[in-house]
Amino acid sequence: MTPANLAAARETYRRIAANIAKIIRGQDSATRHLLAAMAAGGHVLLEDYPGTGKTTLAKALAKSIDAQFKRLQFTPDLLPSDILGVSIFDQRDQQFHFHEGPVFTNILLADEINRASPRTQSALLEAMGEAQVSVEGERRNLPDLFFVIATENPVEFRGTYPLPEAQMDRFAMQFTLGYVSAEEEVAVLTAQEHHHPLDELKPAATLADVIALKRAVEDVRISHELKRYVVDLVSATRTAQGVQLGASPRASIALMKTAQAMALFEGFDFVTPEQIQKLAVPVIAHRLVLEPQARFSGITARGVVEEAVKKVKVPA
């Protein structure tokens, strides 16, 4: 019954997930979220403490799919041209040649994105939103698979430029990796006793497979009722107490697409309410702007979304 492309896509997912699991231990749910965002065509913002494996996760993903991977460390003096690229005059043929910046890649790790100036941040965010960059008036398309994993350090605020709410909205998902259990951490130590397992990681899928996966996600069916549920959930955050700015329709779109991907991963050909509920927090929470008063009275964005999930009647 399952269409062939969905089955193949599911297989691609399993291979990649298994491959990543070899490196990143105890982060199955994070891996699934990450892949769901990638398959849904979104981008991910990882907010976590240093050393929890954000970079490793990104690298493992890049290595697993045999894709081009670039890493960009954001610093206050980083310029937009450092990301997008620059035209340099060539003395020999008396012409300008465009030198592509790190943004022309499949997987981009934007490390500590909140350390760069807003101008530089917005250069990247435009590329994320439009899948294209405009340099010197010329439009250049980014590759078919363009996936940004941005990281943020939640503890240190000095010398940072927090992302404005409008730009937070560009990220399909935000989630944390968190510390793994002691057992898992011991396993990590054991694995790295002699060398880093990442060095030996072999690609589990080709770029074409991943692009097929992205196409397959679009074929996952979603009923009108569940679309309505998605909209109800998102709009519930707009009227929730203590929320100054609720989630946008872009959040609804992201929630639907990632739920489609998640349904595919979980072996469904159609979306069920469970997938929507599971993704509500990582997809919606980072987009909410809370009232200053509410923040002090202990209301969190996560709490608001969880409350909405509990309150809005779920189709069953």
Binding site: T272, P273, E274, Q277, K311, V312, K313, V314, A316
Partner: peptide, 11 residues
Amino acid sequence: PRQPGEPMADW
């Protein structure tokens, strides 16, 4: 009884 926000699978 199932809560209004509880999906069938969890319940």
